[in-house]
């Protein structure tokens, strides 16, 4: 089982790797590229901590193999943090206490980014449904939902 050479775009920059086919995208990002913002919470696609954008779509990086991202464009929380509109995201989450331990937060932010890109003027129910694939054990979701409401209202 040899290793495969891959080339992809991560947070706007080219990234190369030599990976076993079984290496998950999450491990490739975290261990090989040292982009440790992406977190693993269940490695089963349920908790959402590992959510990244793959060609603009929110996906579970624990359920993708790095070899599958060949030629693709991946955005992680580090990329989001470097983006222009991150300040608004950061402010909304901080003002509304949308995080406590912060472990699920990168995944929540990636989902939020995807939600802001796809839904215009969502209702609270729609927001809650969109966030339901990101488990948070600390906040009871209240602050997360409030932060996203604030962001969607600002966007509308």
């Amino acid at each position: 089982m040899g290793k495969a050479a891959i080339t992809l775009t991560v947070n706007g920059a080219e990234a190369d790797g030599l990976v076993e086919p079984r290496r998950t995208l999450a491990d490739f990002l975290r261990e090989d590229l040292a982009l440790t913002g992406t977190k693993l919470g269940c490695e089963q696609g349920v908790c959402g901590a590992c959510t990244v954008l793959l060609d603009g779509q929110a996906v579970r990086s624990c359920l993708l193999f790095a070899v599958q991202a060949q030629g693709a464009s991946v955005t992680t929380v580090e990329g989001l943090a470097a983006s222009e509109d991150f300040d608004a995201l950061q402010k909304a989450f901080s003002d509304n206490h949308g995080l406590q331990c912060g472990y699920c937060t990168p995944g929540v932010l990636m989902t939020t980014r995807a939600l802001l890109d796809t839904l215009s003027s969502p209702s609270e129910n729609e927001i809650r449904e969109a966030l339901s694939g990101n488990i948070c054990r600390c906040t009871g979701y209240h602050g997360i939902v409030e932060a996203v409401k604030e962001l969607t209202a600002a966007q509308a």
């Binding site: 982009l35 440790t36 913002g37 992406t38 992680t76 929380v77 580090e78 943090a81 991150f86 995201l89 950061q90 989450f93 901080s94 995080l99 331990c101 912060g102 937060t105 990168p106 932010l109």
Partner: peptide, 10 residues
């Protein structure tokens, strides 16, 4: 605590 956690730096 928030900025480092939000930026994925923590």
């Amino acid at each position: 605590e928030d900025p480092a956690l939000l930026a994925g730096e923590a």
